[in-house]
Structures are given as C-alpha cells and as structure tokens.
Amino acid sequence: MIQLFAFYMFATIVILAAVMVILARNPVHSVLWLILAFFNAAGLMVLVGAEFVAVLLVIVYVGAVAVLFLFVVMMLDIDVASMRAGFVRNAPLGFAVALVLLAEMVLGFGAYRAGGLALGTPAAPSQALPGLSNIQNVGALLYTRYVFLFEMAGLILLVAMIGAIVLTHRDRRGSAARQDIARQIGRKPVDATVMTRPKVGEGVEL
C-alpha cells in the first residue's frame, strides 16, 4: 500500500518537474526543477530495488551535474527576451512536433495494451547472484566480466578532463598576478633592500 502510494508520489513529481524544466522561463529555475526530477527518479529507483542506481543518481546527477548546469547557465549570456521571441516564432513548428510525438505515444500505448510486450529474460551471466545485495551484484559483474570496459570508462573520464583543460585553461604562470608561496616565503631582506651611505649633497644612485 505504502509502496503504491510512494510510487505514484515519485512518478507524479518526476513528470511534473520534467514538464516544469521545459516550461520555466528562467533557466536557473529549470535547473532547480531538474534537480527535483532527478531526486524523485532516485526515489523510483529505490522502489524497484536498484539502490545503487538511486545513490548514483543523487551523488552524480543531483550533486555534480546540477552544479555544472548552474555554472553553464550562469556562464551563458542568455538574452531571455530574444529567446522568447524565438519561442513565439517557432511555436507552430513546436506544436507540430509535439503532436507527432503525442500521436506516437498514443500508438505506443495502444501497442502496449494490445499485449505486444514480451520482455526477454536476462542472459545467464547477468543474472543476480543469490545472497548478495544489489550493490555487491553490480560490483561482482563490473569488476570481473566487464573489467575491460571499466578501464575504458576511466579513459573516457581522462579525455573529459583533458578536454576541459584544453578548452578552458589559460596559462597564467607568466603573469604578475600569480602568487608563488615558496618564493614569497624564501625571500630574504638582502634580496629586497640595499644599504647605502650617501655623502651629503649627493643623491643615491639606484
């Protein structure tokens, strides 16, 4: 009973929040709605027993991706007024696409009602090991059978890191504004001051 209630609560909020992501006029609000959608999707994952996926959704999407989205939104110079003008101009086309999608969804749902969905049974290696929790099962497959793909995923992360640096990092090592703490601490009075004893009537030659 409580599961059913929780399912409908999470599912409704996911859909509403997803709709609001598109409808919100302020991009920052869209991001906030997106976070809500992710959070409730994590709730749905808990309901189907995929706790690890739920944790990932919260950690990766809600945390990191939302931060990143906010940054991107902040960094882009979006002129809301001109965007709205484009919205009005493209609205008929948008409605046409939406109608097509709606028709497809209705058709798909009809096909579903007709009983056309016969899901495959998972192949033997991907069936759950008895007596292990969800997260242990994920680990048992990911780090043995798919260990090679796991390493390649590491390479993808590395490429993403290189990309961010290549595209955004500006080398400031030459500039005067840079603080080199070791140099700062290692500085001695001798390096900075000169003692002179000028004669009366003569200036100091620097």
């Binding site: 950690i59 990766v60 990191a64 242990q136 680990g139 780090y143 955004t168």
Partner: peptide, 26 residues
C-alpha cells in the same frame, strides 16, 4: 567551470569505488 568539471570527474571516480569496496570478496 574547470573546477566543477574536475569535481565531477573525481566524484564519478569515487562512485565507482563503492561497489568495488563491497564486492571485493567476490
């Protein structure tokens, strides 16, 4: 942005550590 990207990458790396840690016995 660069800081945020670095954060996400290492965050994902940490996310891979959880299932690894609990399934090391298997």
């Amino acid at each position: 942005y660069l800081v945020a990207i670095s954060f996400i990458i290492f965050d994902l790396e940490a996310a891979f550590l959880f299932p690894w840690a609990v399934s090391l016995g298997v």
